[in-house]
Amino acid sequence: MKKTMFIPIAIGILAGIWFLPFSCAREPKFYLPKVGQKYSFLPVQMNNSNPEKYVHEDLPALHLTVRWGGRAVDKENGNPTLNFYKKDQTTPFYSVPWSELETAYKTSGCSSDQIETLDGPMPGVTLICDGRIKISEVAQVEAVSDKGEKKYGYEFSTYKRSDDILAAIIQLY
């Protein structure tokens, strides 16, 4: 290959690599299990299936995952406002756009050890360390996208992520 051809092709390959993240980011891949992937589960509890038992006591930090119809909630795509309701309340006790909540790990007093548990920012995941949401008190989450589309979550799966972090997953549909 002539030198005059090699250099432009090399530049092209490097530029292509530079654009790679954008080409793959077209479709969020998070929480999309691969076909053929096998999961194994052991019972978390035998002889106790009451969903309420899934809610552990609130811990100092809340690792929150929010899914909009299964996919990670996205500030670039709908940026829904989340309205948290307590039982028998008709007005939310806390309303926040996702774009604001997703940075709560920076603004809610989380320690560096707690932030490390995030393993880097993940779509649809945040960490809240100032107790503004006590998940045991949340009866319903209403999400309203910037286009006015609404989705709801009524019950949440929680588990203990570490001694001081409770993980909760809110599925909106």
Binding site: M5, P8, G12, I13, A15, G16, F19, L20, S23
Partner: peptide, 19 residues
């Protein structure tokens, strides 16, 4: 023009494979 087209071609190949 030749060099420019080479760059575009190489970029397209990389992105196509990655996609």
């Amino acid at each position: 023009l030749k060099s420019f087209l080479s760059i575009i071609f190489a970029m397209a190949c990389v992105i196509a494979v990655a996609f």
